[in-house]
Design a protein around this nucleic acid. Structure first.
Lengths: 231, 231
DNA sequence: AGTCATCTTTGACATAGCGCAAACATCGAC
DNA sequence: GTCGATGTTTGCGCTATGTCAAAGATGACT
């Protein structure tokens, strides 16, 4: 298996690993193509592998007992995901669904302890990564606790623009198919409300919508909305 | 410094550490008494130490730019807190306030890497701990996204009863001073709404309130409320 | 005992945003 | 090009909750 090392190197989790160890690590990996709409793993399934996204885009979702769905996070190229076993779970807490054609590296979870034993730094950096996710989660909790829907949506869109934005003409295109429903599930609201908000924004020239499309025209304007303390 | 090893042993983070290493670890600790109402550290301050709560109770809070406060979590005896540096932050993301007279062990953050180097397992178990917190955060996000206030409050109270409950007569007493405002900040609502909800519950004989007091009389009844899918 | 600072309760009112429903747009398949 | 599936927009009414306000409780301090 021949894998480009540069992408792997670029992610903090591996940047300090020796070249030999990295080769060994990659040697155990299997790469897997995932067509859009297909799941890499399902919520509740045994956590047999952990993954690194090389290309494409995934959304990790959870479904509540009563059938409601939320988007836990979006996985971008270079992100590690399906970490469950390392966090002492035996099953995946969510479903990872490809929203665009994707390619992921897969390792059997059993290998994780070995890699950590051989390379203690790995555990440290992994912990930092998780720590970052924890912070993001707290940010989200803070927003949901204190901000009204429009500001939350503004923040979510800005984050997407940062993480998955591609310059396009006057604005920034969100670089994967995303529906109002998705945005609703990321911000804790309904697709109706999101639709209304985006329509209003479109009226003000802040964004430009479309079926599963979003183009941000005025980042500053959006940021103002997101930060603006209503007076 | 003489410290009782049994409590420290009982927490997962240290259960696999050798006796010699544990002694060394504890040898570097300083214990600190924190009177109720005083902060162990403040949001934004340089993360000079990390801590282990031996006795008492803390709440970790964050304040938003516009002055709103939320409670990130409650720290119980045996919990590690003020972890910031291990997660690659240089400052504390929140304030840790003693809600009851407390005693904490303190280590300088610089020691963390040493301990990890000497004891790689430590990093693994630490990561598991953080992973658990991440899950809790996601649970909270899920609840805030999909459940109405009353159910969220029910869940929060049940959690408190589990983690800080002391049997008392017919019911379970929440074992530290907690205000309606606190519960509101844990569930993303206002103290008014919490007060109304608790009053209603009191009417149904589920709980018994009081100034900064809460006694749960009917755990099952509350659980029913928490799980009940409204039909 | 009395005073004060904090909490708590409750009422009245306002409204954000949800649920429901129906029309409309877009895209891929045939 | 037509059709069907899937996503989007928009109107309308409703209600859960926030906001504002004021009146009790409770407990600490002197």
């Amino acid at each position: 298996m021949k894998i480009d090392k540069s992408l792997v190197r670029s992610i903090p989790l591996f940047d300090r690993m020796s070249d030999a160890d990295l080769d060994k690590f990659l040697g155990h990996a299997v790469s897997r193509r995932v067509p859009a709409g297909e799941a890499v793993f399902e919520q509740g399934a045994a956590a047999t592998h952990f993954f690194l996204l090389l290309h494409g885009r995934l959304k990790v979702t959870q479904v509540t007992e009563d059938g409601q769905q939320i988007i836990v996070r979006v996985v971008h190229p270079g992100d590690l995901f399906g970490f469950a076993k390392a966090l002492q779970r035996s099953d995946y807490p969510g479903t990872a669904l490809a929203v665009a054609e994707s390619i992921a590296l897969c390792w059997p979870t059993e290998l994780w302890p070995q890699f950590v034993d051989r390379n203690p730094r790995l555990a440290v950096t992994a912990m930092q990564t998780i720590g970052q996710r924890l912070e993001e989660a707290h940010t989200r909790i803070r927003e949901m606790s204190t901000q009204e829907v429009e500001r939350r949506v503004a923040h979510a869109v800005l984050r997407l623009a940062n993480q998955a934005g591609r310059k396009e003409g006057t604005g920034v295109r969100i670089d994967f198919p995303i529906s109002r429903q998705d945005i609703a599930e990321m911000t804790g609201t309904t697709l109706h409300t999101v639709s209304r908000i985006l329509s209003a924004w479109e009226g003000k020239g802040l964004v430009e919508g479309g079926r599963q499309k979003l183009l941000v025209l005025d980042l500053n304007g959006l940021a103002a909305l997101a930060d603006h303390v209503k007076e």
